[in-house]
Amino acid sequence: MEARGAPGPGQTFRVVVGRSVVLITDPAKPRGAFADFPIPDFIAHFSNTGLAGQDVIVVQQDATGNACDGGPLWLLILGKGRAPKLTRPIDWCGGAPPQIRAEGAKIVIRLPATPPSGQAGPDGVPGETWVFEAGRLRKLGR
């Protein structure tokens, strides 16, 4: 797996697994996937985690500039003999790094709270917990 592209404004990236292009980020398409955060960064890889023979790769989208310290997260699910699958993105602007770990047959992603600032608003942004389990990504209640 690789991301093909060169960091910089206006760059297009292709996330490639084997010979398959899984995702194209194109900032020239304002409604395209991750147009505002075109740079994919692979931040975690889980293999043999009890996820039915699947590998799960956590990807964080990034951008040039300084409005966010990172960007949306999504999971790339790879299974033998199956086409790669993408989850929907988890909206995230960054800050302290997310805590990501496998717990048996699930992957837990904890997004830490962001303290108040001009970007986060007067109360900051509360933390969130997301779980990928049984092929589904869901946000846990507060």
Score class of each variant (00 low, 15 high):
Ala28Pro: 00
Pro98Glu: 10
Pro112Thr: 14
Pro30Trp: 06
Ser47Asp: 10
Arg101Met: 07
Leu78Gln: 07
Ala102His: 02
Leu86Asp: 04
Pro72Ala: 15
Ile43Lys: 12
Ser20His: 10
Gln61Asp: 04
Ile24Gly: 02
Ile109Glu: 02
Arg88Met: 04
Thr87Pro: 00
Ile77Glu: 01
Phe37Pro: 00
Asn48Ala: 08
Gly32Tyr: 11
Pro98Lys: 10
Asp91Tyr: 11
Thr49Val: 02
Ile57Arg: 09
Pro27Phe: 15
Ile107Val: 13
Lys106Glu: 15
Glu103Val: 15
Leu86Glu: 02
Gly50His: 03
His45Glu: 14
Arg82Trp: 01
Gly32Thr: 10
Gly18Lys: 05
Ala102Lys: 01
Ile57Tyr: 06
Val17Trp: 08
Gly50Ser: 06
Ala96Ser: 05
Gln99Met: 07
Arg31Phe: 13
Cys68Ala: 15
Val56Gln: 00
Pro72Trp: 02
Arg31Val: 03
Ser20Val: 14
Gln61Leu: 13
Pro115Leu: 08
Ala83Cys: 00
Phe42Leu: 13
Pro115Ala: 07
Asp36Leu: 12
Glu103Thr: 07
Phe42Met: 12
Asn48Ile: 00
Ala52Gln: 10
Gln54Leu: 01
Asp62Met: 13
Asp26Gln: 13
Val59Ser: 03
Leu111Ile: 13
Ser20Thr: 14
Asp41Lys: 15
Ala96Ile: 01
Phe42Ser: 12
Ala113Gln: 08
Arg101Gln: 13
Ser47Leu: 03
Leu86Met: 14
Val108Ala: 09
Arg19Trp: 04
Gly53Lys: 06
Pro115Ile: 07
Ile90Leu: 11
Ala83Ile: 01
Gly50Asn: 08
Ile39Gly: 02
Arg31Asn: 08
Gly53Tyr: 04
Trp74Asn: 01
Ile77Asn: 00
Val56Phe: 01
Leu51Asp: 03
Ile90Tyr: 11
Trp74Asp: 00
Trp92Val: 07
Gly18His: 11
Gln99Phe: 06
Ile107His: 04
Cys68Tyr: 13
Ile107Arg: 09
Pro112Val: 12
Ile24Trp: 10
Ala105Ile: 00
